[in-house]
Design a protein around this nucleic acid. Structure first.
Lengths: 230, 230
DNA sequence: GTGATGTCAAGAGCAGTGCTCTCGATTCGG
DNA sequence: CCGAATCGAGAGCACTGCTCTTGACATCAC
């Protein structure tokens, strides 16, 4: 990935890296709406038009930051899962949830860029998909291994209308579990990010003060819903 | 509320109404980021500075739209709840969930303004709170009445650390239910909006196609988590 | 080595934004 | 009826994303 051949390519890659780094810092302080190409250029001692040699538009720069963000939360999730006891499936689920929440609290603007409203005028760049799947892959692995170990509680049936969707999820995430397990996992997945978003976007203001304790308990409830015994 | 005394006050109220209406239409087509005071003024045949006689800033106009949005979804929820059989608590829960989802699908940009990332540079105007509570009041009433009717399944305990928060919620929403019921209701509440946000913000792309069927099933699972028997 | 080729930063400029201030005209209240 | 309050218009400031042209530089083939 590194080792650009010519010197030109090397300095070009370095400049792209520097631009994204400054942009990420601005994103962290000002938010996505305050990210300005001109400000990035100013901080680099360049003129604004020069940035366009490296990013065709502001949205393209934003997309690069989105991909980096998905990878960052994916890495945090993978690390949290690896540090938990492999056979303690409920513990792994809770550790992963906590990792998502902690990353979100540390990078609120980046989280908003990933899981908030899609700002830049509705676009869903396809190249963000693989990075966006890293956390779901981890969650799927936890549930899959718990199922293989016979550690999942039995659950009610899944509507036949969802069979096609469940089959797609099963193959995309390399799961070997029945439909009713997948659909409950998806519910817990949405509940995780819904709870984090509520906390970050202010819906818990004047409602929940003991954020960490509430989060742990809610995630435990969702884990049980997914079949994970505490 | 109407019947401004002087003619000036009447035309002023009418102009404020017209501004918000045009702004809401622009919001619906362009999104929050594309809402432009100058464009609103242009469409009204006014000059941009004249708008500032009625709204001190773009953010203030946005806040007015936010309050209107909360009231709109609150009304939709109240109507859905009223149209369901009073004693069918699970049915009322599902009807309310569907009302939220349908409103969100019909007004995606407004929904993003309410439940997405807080765009206008982090502010939480206090005057949005009462409007934002209308839907949660309905949800609380369903669970409260179900509990009073003895229709809730028993649930595990709630951590004592959350007793203070639960007491605050209980008094704010006029609920007469124990802590463990409240915390499960909150979990279902966050799950509802998390699911709607996931669908609207693109996280279900290439994952779930049978959106309505999946939504109904997920909401039923969350309703059961809250104690509502199907 | 030298000349052609491609890449680069810089600058000017366009169209748009939120917002402020001033200046006449209109309207209201006493 | 007259002073005071309110209003719309206009100019202007400091920004933004983005385009186009220009001249300097490095790279590569010969």
């Amino acid at each position: 990935m590194s080792a650009g051949r010519t010197a030109r390519e090397r300095v070009r890659a370095e400049l792209i890296r520097e631009i994204t780094e400054i942009a990420r810092r601005q994103l962290a302080t000002e938010g996505a709406a305050g990210l300005s190409l001109r400000a990035v250029a100013r901080e680099m001692g360049m003129v604004s038009s020069a940035i366009y040699r490296y990013f065709a538009s502001r949205d393209e720069l934003l997309t690069a930051l989105i991909i980096d963000g998905y990878n960052a939360v994916g890495e945090a999730v993978e690390r949290a899962d690896a540090n938990a006891g492999a056979a303690d499936f409920a513990g792994r689920w809770l550790a992963v949830c906590r990792a998502v929440r902690e990353w979100a609290l540390e990078h609120p603007h980046e989280y908003a860029l990933l899981y908030g409203s899609p700002v830049p005028g509705y676009k869903a760049p396809e190249d963000t998909v693989p990075a966006a799947m890293r956390d779901t892959v981890v969650l799927a692995r936890i549930i899959g291994e718990a199922h293989a170990a016979g550690a999942l509680e039995p659950s009610g049936p899944c509507p036949p209308a969802l069979a096609g969707d469940m089959a797609r999820v099963r193959s995309a995430l390399f799961m070997d579990v029945p439909d009713e397990v997948i659909v409950r996992g998806l519910t817990a997945w949405a509940g995780l990010y819904g709870t984090v978003s509520f906390e970050l976007f202010g819906q818990f203001n004047n409602v929940i003060e003991e954020r960490a304790a509430y989060f742990d308990h809610t995630m435990t409830l969702l884990g049980r819903l997914a079949g994970l015994k505490p």
